[in-house]
Design a protein around this nucleic acid. Structure first.
Lengths: 184, 184
DNA sequence: ATTTTTTGTTTAATATATTTAACGTTTTAA
DNA sequence: TTAAAACGTTAAATATATTAAACAAAAAAT
């Protein structure tokens, strides 16, 4: 049922990244070096105050500490024709990168054909999303509000509020969006 | 120096959102109800194992628990002339939204004049950033690699790796970027 | 109106996190 | 080649988190 977390290797990894010894970290954070050792070998179940004292001295937030992922890919640039096609049809999405982590922004180059929409049922997910209109016009529904955006306009909202996108114009609507964490 | 965190009201807020009592939560998470009470009134400094047991039963991740914020603004659409100007000069940034939280993507419409760069010292911060070139050309340095991007190309990398941007062309370079969490 | 539950809080008992001080190894200096 | 310093680990002392059991107050049930 309840699996306990391996904060030991997390902390050790963080410490190695910053290239400091257990004792140096202990001094900075004003805890005993023994504690650092015990935590890193998962021989104790540290209190939050303890963890916070240590992470504050790094510094790194608790949230970021637990969101920390083991990064592997070293790919940086995605050429025009290397963007990941997610959907085709009336709405097409081109995504920057693949298999995104929760701490990465999901950037999409979106193209809505005239009249295209995301469906009559509203979308809901646990993210924050933002976008900027590059071409055409967009009808954006967030909660019980309907907005009309033109080229250059932008939006930013919490995706847990039901929302919906539509191209109400006669020409294609092109926009760039970012969603954190990725929604699909 | 080291300020301790108020996990008490955090947990109480979470519990009230889910509309369950201390004892119900205690049973679900198999800890004593006294413990829930003590934590919520900040009368104890719980261990991570303890917190994890409780949050697992909700369920919510530790990272999300600490990223949890009190939502206030209801502004959704930012008109073309409402984007927040961050810098002017050789590089100008227009940001979508203001006072961003850590769980929001920081979207920027960036314009580099010919020859403009982010300075000779490399940038480093704890984020993930991504971008798409709209006009012109961009020279991107990440670690010891230099990339040249043209209109339509994109990038995605971890910002803790030293990096640098430059417009090597004779015309303006315009791009849209997203950074999570916001870098400034 | 009076039980009967359910709420959140507190106290004493006990289990365990944390520190201090030592250990053996490896690295750096002389 | 030895001395000195820094590394991570461990044992016993002590400080504190956690529990079980009782508490009073409010809500629900009869």
């Amino acid at each position: 049922m309840h699996e306990d977390i391996d904060i030991g290797t997390r902390l050790k990894k963080l410490r190695h990244e910053r290239q400091i010894s257990q004792r140096q970290l202990a001094i900075k954070s004003k805890v005993s070096n023994a504690m650092i050792s015990l935590i890193e070998s998962n021989k104790t179940n540290p209190s939050l105050g303890m963890l916070k004292k240590i992470l504050d001295s790094v510094p790194i937030s608790i949230s970021d500490f637990f969101a920390m992922e083991i990064k592997l890919t070293n790919k940086v640039v995605y050429r025009k024709d290397e963007l990941t096609e997610i959907g085709s049809g009336p709405i097409s999405y081109l995504q920057i990168g693949q298999n995104l982590n929760n701490n990465q922004p999901q950037m999409l180059l979106e193209r809505y054909k005239p009249g295209a929409d995301t469906g009559k049922s509203m979308l809901t997910h646990e993210s924050e999303e933002s976008g900027l209109i590059l071409e055409g016009r967009l009808e954006l529904t967030v909660g019980d509000q309907i907005y009309y955006l033109s080229t250059g306009d932008a939006y930013l909202f919490n995706s847990s509020v039901p929302h919906r996108f539509k191209n109400p114009g006669a020409t294609d609507c092109v926009l760039v969006s970012a969603c954190t964490p990725p929604s699909f």
